[in-house]
Amino acid sequence: MSVINPGVSAPSATRAAARARRREERELEAATTIRIFGIRRRTVALVTGLCILFALFTLVPIAWMLINSTKNQANIFESFGFWFARPFVLLHNFKMLFENVDGDGTYIQWLGNTALYAGLGGIGATALSALGGYGFAHFKFRGSKLAFSLVLAALLVPIAAITLPLYFVYAKVGLINNIWGMILPSMVSPVGVLLMRVYVSGSVPRELIDAARLDGASEPRIFFRLAVPLMVPGLTTVLLLSVVGIWNNYFLPLVIFSKNSMYPLTEGLGLWASHASTSGDQNIYPLLVIGGFVTIIPSIALFLILQRYWRGGALLGSFAN
């Protein structure tokens, strides 16, 4: 991306430098705080100890998943939960993700569905937010105030409150068990529109657009060739927010899909969890553990890699969704 468009790489380089500078400042500041207030070593050790405790609390369930995804069902129940046991059946468990073990469905199919819903829904949400945010930031037209107050109103209504109403409409028009019933509402992201409006106002200068117009560029051309490249960091944040939102959504697919073959991962795992105690299949618990573990690996990796896109404001948006 940065090779094609040098305009993007330059700010990211300066951003890296700014980050390094900020880190230095922070370290200096920390040292100063400790000196000024005469904080004892013991206090630092105590606070760090509390941090370690909370980090353990955070990581214990994930470590448990990792360790127990290598065990068979008997060992999940009987062996010590926080250490490995023989036989070591990680590969066997992993293979089961590609099989329909207890007749409820196949993990890999659900993973594919989730990727499809999150991919299409995320791209759609980002596109609609980019267009909308750009429109609201740089244009005034009849009804623009009303349309924007609609966006603000939509912020107040989380998707969970819309889920049942969507179900009633779908039942009427036959959108139950239709993938578009999942994808299309996921494209409505008022938070995305708001974020993009703020982002566009800050990063796509009006004078630039005016100059392009004077050169005779058409409005779509100005948007795609001029504005979109400048909006890339903001678009990435919106894409991440919506992909994660759809990836984690449980209520909507639960309500609108009754065919197991259409389930996303969340719903498939939920189904396994609810059948685990009654299934009687020797592989159901290991499947649940490795399924859960494989589900969280990509999202955790994505978060760690793309950490810098998660700033305070964007995070608040994700919650409201």
Binding site: L128, S129, L131, G132, G135, H138, F141, V188, P190, E219
Partner: peptide
């Protein structure tokens, strides 16, 4: 013309 940028979101909404 700005309305055309906003219309897709508004319709979906």
């Amino acid at each position: 013309r700005g309305i055309w940028f906003v219309v897709p979101f508004v319709i979906a909404f």
